[in-house]
Design a protein around this nucleic acid. Structure first.
Lengths: 347, 347
DNA sequence: GAGAGTAAGGCGAACGTTCGCCTTGATGCT
DNA sequence: AGCATCAAGGCGAACGTTCGCCTTACTCTC
């Protein structure tokens, strides 16, 4: 239970009215040094702390931010999210807010749940992560007219909520350009299903880089799949089965685990990763470095994204209407070059 | 910003006093069916939701639980925590609470920070995870006299706060017994540093099982180390270097990544894991299953622990004084038997 | 038909703040 | 001396609930 030292207690001890104490503590009023000192002392002696609930009621703001993310299904793990969470908590704290957990589980009463949280004054706004293609949360929150910033973009339909996202296109472009520098010419792309928002974004980076280099792309090189390890494994085998003239010497993937599957396939063929076939991943998954130390990959600037998401949201709370360029932010990932894409020797 | 439909608005439309509306909605009063219907209709039409802040102020409880965990250092990842977080959010929601994130960063003003949160009425109590040997949070929160339940135990000094923890001793005992059944006789234990609370707990499970089986333990078999992969790797090599009569045929470890290192060492010797040397881990780390599918390990019942932690905490809120056995709970992990401990053929 | 009992709902107060306006007394100016 | 000015701090009200007690009117009982 909260401490029960209130303004009135402090006031009584300091011999002033409690409203005056409130104003003194927030520097909203000028008083004689003696009075200020008396109040300060009373505060210390009694251990007074302003009651946040009362303040929230009066100010009509909870200083709480709801964080909605997608529960990991079964034992799948998203390495990104923990760092993101840390980052938003850190930024929120810095700006005087706290983060309330609010996992998103699909269901018919989605609207009801959010409405509840917002109309009951529980939270001032939301941070969403794990946005999906046509995420159902977006229309719901749009309708509620509540401040909201997302990590990631949804489908580009009418609603244009503010977001901060990784520039997957620029990332993949970097990866492909890096491979081109290593004098690869035939480069495959293991992407996600065609409906995937993130997947198409990353794919376009591939196209851009190939086009800029003036290189032709064999349709067989571009694949779309839903799995992780297994998908990478079988897709890589398919690529390696192509006739010599069409066979790729490099495989760009949209996710580390897909890359791991591909590496496995390459090795099973008796080929050496890097020297014979280059492979790149995406995310720089922490644990992976123990098991496959040499994977070239793209590291998402998760910490920075978290910071910017919160800063943007707080600006919205304050009634700011940020410019387009400030409310739709893309941050490029960092290419981490390791052995899986080095030392290519064309044969 | 919160909806601004209040009890008074509903009351005006329904033609009753607002206090009556409040009571009707919470079923604290009997009214004629007509009045109830009028009120219900007004609620629906206006979209009334009780203001949580006002309720909190009146009831002197925030219905918020602070969750304090240790920020992952650098790129280390704790696979357990995400599920734990999910679980406590789920349980809290079920019981009418929400979880407020409050990462624990070491520092001199630790006390101040917690005091702030408690005395300001921000949270009703705390859940702690990642307890360390002599965790600094414990005395602080002890002094604040705030309801608190931990996932894990700290050093057993005076303060005996409620906790729910994995029974590491029982877990390791299970693992060792399983190996004994596979007719292993010389079993090594790769533990954590001697000061580690969790480490000594798990070690005692090893001793118990070996003693119960009446088997001698060579001091060289029991190792303490701080690392992860590297530690497992070098420790296993050391064990395999022992003279034939003292060499172990099984290696029990306290953490999956240590086991992975050990597996690597075993394989480098040209030995086959399982058939020649058995290895077991701890945690059933999700990603690992992609890379080392056959590792026998102990799966922590994280979901169940989260549920029980919250239930216990809510009981404390309600003024319950749970019995010793209810407030110090140990849950045994589940032994997941895979290939790394099967098919032993003594030579 | 008077008193007691009960059901339905009204009313004031309180939770601990913050905000805007008001009062008081001292000072300055002409 | 008379008036305006200003600094210091008091005071009432409001934020939206919940709680306990009170009033009113109706029904039952002998």
């Amino acid at each position: 239970m909260a401490n029960n030292v209130t303004l009135k207690d402090v006031a009584r001890r300091a011999g002033v009215s409690y409203q005056t104490v409130s104003k003194i503590l927030r520097n909203q009023i000028q008083v004689t040094p003696e009075v200020r000192a008396r109040v300060q002392q009373a505060v210390e002696e009694l251990g007074y702390r302003p009651n946040i609930t009362a303040r929230s009621l009066r100010l009509q703001t909870s200083h709480l931010i709801g964080y909605s993310w997608k529960s990991a299904h079964e034992r799948y793990i998203n390495p990104i999210l923990e760092e993101f969470e840390q980052s938003i908590v850190d930024a929120a704290e810095r700006l005087g807010y706290h983060i309330l957990l609010f996992p998103y589980h699909q269901g018919p009463d989605l609207y009801r749940t959010y409405e509840e949280l917002v109309y009951s004054g529980r939270v001032d706004g939301f941070i969403l992560s794990d946005l999906e293609f046509d995420d159902p949360r977006i229309p719901v929150l749009d309708r509620l007219q509540v401040p909201l910033v997302a990590f990631g973009r949804a489908q580009s339909d009418g609603s244009t909520f503010p977001y901060v996202d990784v520039d997957g296109r620029a990332g993949i472009r970097q990866a492909v350009e890096h491979l081109l520098e290593q004098s690869h010419q035939r480069i495959a792309f293991l992407g996600w299903p065609e409906q995937s928002r993130v997947g198409t974004d990353r794919l376009s980076g591939y196209w851009e880089a190939m086009k800029a280099a003036g290189l032709p792309v064999d349709p067989a090189w571009v694949m779309h799949g839903a799995g992780q390890y297994d998908y990478g494994y079988t897709a890589a085998h398919t690529l390696l089965d192509l006739p010599a003239g069409r066979r790729t010497s490099a495989i760009v993937t949209v996710y580390d685990l897909i890359a791991v599957g591909a590496v496995q396939a390459v090795q099973e063929r008796g080929l050496q990763v890097g020297r014979d076939v280059a492979v790149t991943g995406f995310d720089d998954t922490p644990l992976l470095s123990y098991l496959l130390p040499g994977l070239t990959t793209l590291r998402q600037p998760v910490w920075e994204i978290g910071q910017r998401v919160v800063e943007l949201l707080v600006r919205l709370f304050e009634g700011d209407k940020p410019a387009e360029s400030e409310s739709h932010v893309l941050v490029p990932p960092e290419l981490v070059i390791r052995d899986s894409s080095r030392g290519y020797r064309p044969r």
